[in-house]
Design a protein around this nucleic acid. Sequence first.
DNA 1: TATTGTTATACTCTATAACTATA
DNA 2: TATAGTTATAGAGTATAACAATA
Lengths: 146, 146
Amino acid sequence: MRTNPSPDQSELAAELRIAVGRLHRRLRHQRGTVDLPDHLVAVLGLLHRAGPQAPGALAEHECVRPPQMTRSVNQLVESGFAVKTPHPEDGRQVVVEITETGRSQLIELRRRRDEWLDAELSTLDESERTTLEQAAHILQRMAGGR
Amino acid sequence: MRTNPSPDQSELAAELRIAVGRLHRRLRHQRGTVDLPDHLVAVLGLLHRAGPQAPGALAEHECVRPPQMTRSVNQLVESGFAVKTPHPEDGRQVVVEITETGRSQLIELRRRRDEWLDAELSTLDESERTTLEQAAHILQRMAGGR
DNA sequence: TATTGTTATACTCTATAACTATA
DNA sequence: TATAGTTATAGAGTATAACAATA
């Protein structure tokens, strides 16, 4: 590996896929039992950043099918972290909004949840962290764009 | 974002977690129906790169529990991509080895499976690809090291 | 008694298909 | 008839607990 300064793109794709899959499992394995699962935190974060939205839009953003987003939203509502209100003009639509409880919970969750990741990041040097920061933005753009 | 050349580490952890989760879902969503699932390809790749190993070692490397690795290995064996042989000295242990069929299948799988990822990578510039290549190695080290 | 692997069971996340209500 | 959301159902992947075989 690393034989070429202009790496073969298929090899990069394979490496990325494996790295992402492995870290994803590791993160899930590492998380505490009391916390919200990853996908709910992702939805909560999206509501926090991007504001009130319809379930369909949330589903598209998070790359899941509408039925799954229905369940995720319902779990957030049951936990008091989000509310569903009917759309004022279109009776078919629903608007999902984060609550104040959800907002403060999100901050607290993130602080408690990233202990392992923080520790791992601490073992890296500054340039490696910078690389990961840039990579995170590129990956988010690749996965979330369109 | 990107307001700070020395980014806050907790923020980086959150960004990484979200990026990895989202890309993981996107990749799963994007993959063809005839292919082996990600986790089997990962095991096959590990057997290809690191040679014959016991299921326990595979499980630790891939961050899954032994029962899950038992199933993954059995699926690979049923498909003819790996073989299980008894350990020559320790009757409790099993040695898992990739077959020639598995090896050639792995190459072909990767080529066919990464179409979406390849296309996305093609839209990046050279420096972004270099960033991702370095990040892939760092992430693999973080997830697989220990 | 400790270790390696497996079987049994259950839970989480996800998808597709069918259904309801509104436009 | 088309669209937004939901319900019903099924499947994949994973975990924990209990078990079997060997050391």
